[in-house]
Amino acid sequence: MSVDAQDSPDTGELARTPEQIPEGQHGFWTGRSGLVVAGILAAIGAYLVVGIVIMDVPEGAKVPGPTFFPILIAIAVFVLAALLAVQTLRKPEPVPATEGNARFHTDWKSLGLVFGSFLAFALLLVPVGWLISAALLFWGVSRALGSRRPLFDVGLALVFSSCIQLAFGAGLGLNLPGGILEGIYG
């Protein structure tokens, strides 16, 4: 299980010292964005409920049937979502007042670039092939994480994806999609 150093208490000097900002300087949502998790839980619960209602239970299924356990989970999910929401509303996250709060907020640009790169990889893998889509993924992620040499990265990404293609495809016999380059190597 990987737990991030920042999330675990007292890992030495890594743990920052959050200084509370006086009340009233932030809007309602400051420190309460954790409600997102309660929302996700509620959404999971809703999906479970819909699934339980429309489930096609085969004739003669013994009791307790296939819906029994999911019903228990759905109840637990809703109870916990409510508890989480109450907890987040009553005790918002403390806002550390360092460097204009910049470090506290999520870097949506980098995050979006990583997410988008992986999505593109997933969608392009079969039509375009491993070599190019994996190189694109490598390039996108390294760019998102602050690499500043785009042209060099293109070369490195292509070398990296070809090495994997060689080692796993040719060496270990794993079937990686060839895509548009099918037939050129293989």
């Binding site: 991030d4 995050l111 670039l113 997410f115 994480l145």
Partner: peptide, 9 residues
């Protein structure tokens, strides 16, 4: 994703 969200921070 977590590292990406914090790398510049």
């Amino acid at each position: 994703l977590h590292v990406a969200s914090r790398i510049h921070r």
